[in-house]
């Protein structure tokens, strides 16, 4: 497996795949952090406020990162029609796993970079007090879990379909539904069942008391309960998408 992973890294040379990922992460950070931080409420509750606001940006940028990276890694072989040749050298399942491990670890690294920049940014802006690390670690775990589900799903689609437009359209439509689901509290099942909605389903920080007239005068932030079923659904999806994707890829005609 180490050899296969090294092969994947060699194939990535001069393709700027990690740079693309960093660019998407940077765009996500700009979108997430651009704003006015001068208000007293924001300064006082800055750390928790970020945890409340970030899932929306995560629901837009990390799914896009997953689909771009998985597609680029799979397309290297699709474009060169080299799967058949690869299958004569190595088992199909191992090729599937090597590509998955390469892409997934890069994507999770970008989540970690994003998270670290948030902490540094909060320090630079001088939010009141120390960052609540327990909540921030929880946020990191939730974002990583949601991203992992999506990456495994997108990886399967990208590997199965030669035409990468299929993978892109699935990802774009899914992201669309995921983002919308965050604005539909009346449909909790939508974000709990659709993989792109997990960023919203795992959101644990809520803002209450905000009104357009009084704004933050009576506002406060509170930890919300997350339906435990979501964690089970995520675990089931990870296993299901991985097993199904690998099974279909191993049976696929090349």
């Amino acid at each position: 497996m180490i050899k296969l992973l090294r092969c994947e890294l060699l194939k990535m040379r001069h393709k700027y795949i990690f740079l693309t990922l960093l660019a998407i992460t940077a765009a996500g950070l700009v979108f997430s952090l651009y704003g006015d931080y001068s208000g007293e409420f924001i300064q006082k509750n800055g750390w928790c406020m970020m945890l409340y606001q970030l899932p929306l940006a995560n629901g837009i940028f990390f799914p896009i990162a997953c689909l771009v990276i998985s597609s680029r890694l799979a397309d290297t072989e699709h474009k060169a029609s080299s799967y058949k040749q690869l299958f004569t050298l190595e088992k199909r399942g191992r090729i599937y796993d090597a590509k998955l491990m390469t892409g997934l670890s890069m994507t999770l690294l970008s989540v970690l970079i994003y998270w670290s920049v948030l902490l540094v940014f909060g320090k630079i802006i001088r939010f009141y007090g120390e960052p609540p690390m327990e909540l921030y670690l929880r946020y990191l775990a939730c974002t990583a879990a949601a991203t992992a589900v999506l990456y495994i799903l997108q990886h399967g689609i990208s590997m199965l379909f030669k035409n990468q437009a299929v993978s892109f359209f699935t990802g774009a439509i899914g992201t669309f539904i995921g983002v919308f689901s965050m604005f539909l509290p009346q449909l909790p099942l939508l974000r709990q069942l659709i993989p792109w909605g997990f960023y919203g389903a795992l959101q644990f920080m809520g803002l209450y008391g905000w009104t357009s007239e009084e704004r933050y005068a009576n506002a406060y932030l509170k930890i919300m309960s997350v339906d435990p079923a979501v964690y089970v659904i995520i675990a089931v999806y990870i296993i299901l998408f991985y097993a199904l994707g690998k099974y279909l890829f191993c049976r696929k005609e090349t």
């Binding site: 393709k15 693309t20 689909l67 597609s71 892109f168």
Partner: peptide, 11 residues
Amino acid sequence: SFALPIGISLA
């Protein structure tokens, strides 16, 4: 690449 221009479009 098929993916890269789409990333640029999002940016």
